[in-house]
Design a protein around this nucleic acid. Structure first.
Lengths: 226, 226
DNA sequence: GTTAAAATGAACCACTCGGTTAATTACGTC
DNA sequence: GACGTAATTAACCGAGTGGTTCATTTTAAC
């Protein structure tokens, strides 16, 4: 079910004197602008005026639709999580043998994080705030279990096939995959200032990704199957 | 060389009407308060007034000694990095065989990050700001290379002893160790909201640490030596 | 066409916050 | 103990910020 991309990019509207009503586009416009601004500067660092500037609409509209700054931030966070879930759900690996399926998951996560730095930054920011806002997103716990369930299915199949260690923990595997994929994007600035940015060149990134795959494999595979 | 802990905890001074001059203690007091506040709320989120409240001194003194908010933040960052370096330097592992030395480094990093959440948060915050402030800390690049050099020595010894793969990269090893140790602290909030906080119980943390040790070992050791 | 509700624009406002001014107190020193 | 300097206090300030008021325009329903 592709989401019927109605491209009404907000550029098209409102350049003349009079205007047309188009609440959905305006809301989406605000949400995108807000995401960029919040991701760039954090909750307190973000400026409403800066969001307005990224927008085709006015400050008035932001408060009209979203109430206050924090609610807008929450809406941004919610939307960002939704998109990630959607992307994850589209990863179909049921037909692959367990070790290859696991590789696919790792590669997907690593790549996906790299391609969505704004999402990573929102999560960083949310962690700075101890996840206080995220806790208000209801659909969260239920849908994020999906990620674990996916790994759980792979692990069960792997154990049954005699490929994986019998005591393998999907949660720990997920922790490891996330840690390296997340760090790779989140800490790029400080890491490369400290140790140079060689590791962030394209070929080095491919190497790192493979390193993560191997790392995960080695903690999942039975010693005699490595 | 123990640093002559002159405990003048700032509690002792200035409860009466009149006051005594004691610039060093005041500066240190401000710096500690500022670190807590910046770590808690970020650069823009931190409030000078909140720093003052954590302090025995006045707002005026903060600007008197540190100029402006950003310079204070920089001083905090600088001091935090200094302390970390000092702790790292005290880790003596030259006498250990390479595999055990590597284990020690991993365990040290993992534990140290856990025990210094404020430092982790400062690094997170600095990454949000793309490391722009950190770049002004001069002694950084030189001293952080020490971490790599330490790993490099271990790796050389490991390769010479026929224990490690000949193509092992100290930088990549460091990346991996940092990634997992850092993520473990930095993303605790969001991770546990998404997947529960089981992994952050003490015994689970010991298990995770061992997992990291094994993970690193498997990417360093020659296949036939695992 | 009238009307009520939704959407938008322009100006405005209260207040927070980083930073400052000016006067006061302690301290080293001759 | 006089004197210049460093350290400290209390009150103050202006810019910027999140948020609002009020009037106007569009849309949809009848």
């Amino acid at each position: 079910m592709v989401s019927e991309t109605k491209q009404k990019t907000a550029q098209t509207r409102s350049q003349g004197r009079s205007w047309k009503q188009d609440p959905e586009t305006v809301k989406a416009d605000i949400l995108n602008a807000a995401r960029a601004e919040f991701a760039a500067h954090g909750l307190s660092g973000a400026r409403i005026s800066a969001i307005v500037e990224r927008t085709q609409t006015s400050k008035r509209m932001i408060f009209y639709y979203f109430g206050d700054k924090e609610s807008l931030y929450l809406a941004v966070l919610d939307q960002a999580y939704r998109e990630v879930r959607e992307a994850e759900a589209n990863l179909d690996i049921r037909h692959l043998p367990p070790d290859e399926a696991l590789r696919k998951v790792v590669e997907f996560t690593f790549d996906h994080h790299r391609q969505n730095p704004d999402f990573i930054r929102l999560v960083m920011i949310e962690n700075i705030h101890d996840g206080t806002h995220m806790s208000r997103i209801e659909t969260l716990a239920t849908t994020n279990i999906a990620a674990i369930e996916q790994l759980d299915r792979i692990c069960r199949r792997g154990v049954e096939a005699g490929l994986f260690r019998p005591d393998v923990s999907p949660l720990v595997i997920h922790w490891q995959i996330s840690a390296m994929s997340f760090f790779n994007v989140a800490n790029r600035a400080t890491f490369s200032m400290n140790f140079g940015d060689d590791l962030f060149a394209e070929n080095a990134q491919l190497m790192l990704r493979e390193q993560v795959v191997q790392s995960i494999a080695s903690s999942v595979l039975r010693p005699d199957r490595v």
